[in-house]
């Protein structure tokens, strides 16, 4: 028996008025696969990403997550299916401490934070888990700092920590290395590679070096459509891909 794919798209199309940003995309990812969606600016990769997370409704087609049709599911309902995501532009709780940020993530996963009459610090198991998650991305010892005191690279790390809390089965990363320096990129791709191999990961990226460093599978988009899909080496040698993307890089 083959297991249900963590993510399956059938003829997904998203148009904004007359503009078709994502056009008839059919795609299925396998469990544990680390796919990178690559493409030049305006290729529709971020739009596709939003359709998968549910921030944008799709125009036609179906999206299945772990075999469930999620076309009508809200983003938070999709999260509860086991989907974790990061944001392209760092999206953190700016006025809270790192620990509070991660505590909220733990609660969100567990459908918690319903109590009114205990203090959040007194829930030891939640706080301990939050500390462990901070350790995992190398932010231990900074738990009590405010987010505003972090460097940009550290904010990206925290962004990843929030997505990893509670062990998502499908992880969606939206340009995780955007805005990082060369050395920070290397450290960050290390963190991404360290994500447990049972987590299916889909990464939207336009930086080729990052893409080739982390991908098991490269999916190349151009003008809303998939133009190539396969192992990185194979994709690199495809002439069509070289023309639209790699050629001018």
């Amino acid at each position: 028996m083959t297991s249900t794919p963590p993510l399956r798209l059938d003829n997904v199309t998203k148009s904004f008025g007359g503009l078709t940003a994502v056009s008839d995309v059919t795609l299925s990812v396998h469990e544990g696969e680390r796919s990178v969606i690559l493409g030049p600016n305006g290729a529709g990769k971020t739009t596709l990403f939003h359709c998968i997370t549910g921030t944008l409704p799709i125009t036609s087609g179906t999206i299945q997550i772990f075999g469930k049709n999620v076309n009508r599911m809200t983003p938070n309902a999709r999260t509860r299916l086991g989907v974790g995501r990061t944001f392209q532009i760092t999206n953190l709780f700016a006025e809270l401490t790192l620990l509070q940020n991660v505590v909220l993530a733990v609660h969100g996963r567990a459908r918690g934070a319903r109590r009114l009459f205990t203090s959040w610090q007194s829930e030891r198991h939640v706080v301990d888990q939050a500390h462990a998650e901070l350790d995992r991305v190398g932010l231990c010892g900074k738990a009590d700092l405010d987010v505003s005191e972090l460097s940009y690279g550290e904010r990206r790390q925290l962004e990843l920590a929030l997505a990893l809390v509670g062990g998502p089965r499908l992880l969606l990363l939206d340009e995780p290395c955007a805005g990082l320096s060369q050395s920070e990129r290397q450290a960050f791709t290390g963190l991404i590679r360290a994500i447990p191999s049972n987590v299916t990961t889909i990464i939207v990226e336009h930086d080729m070096d990052v893409a080739f460093a982390i991908a098991d599978r490269l999916i190349v988009m151009n003008q809303g459509a998939l133009i190539c899909d396969g192992p990185p080496e194979e994709v690199r040698n495809t002439t069509e891909v070289q023309e639209v993307y790699l050629g001018d890089a």
């Binding site: 997370t53 921030t55 809200t74 983003p75 938070n76 999260t79 509860r80 974790g84 995501r85 944001f87 999206n91 953190l92 709780f93 909220l104 993530a105 609660h107 969100g108 996963r109 459908r111 934070a113 929030l162 997505a163 809390v165």
Partner: peptide, 8 residues
């Protein structure tokens, strides 16, 4: 948006 992404 982040709260929604966390499942709230």
């Amino acid at each position: 948006s982040r709260m929604t992404a966390l499942g709230f």
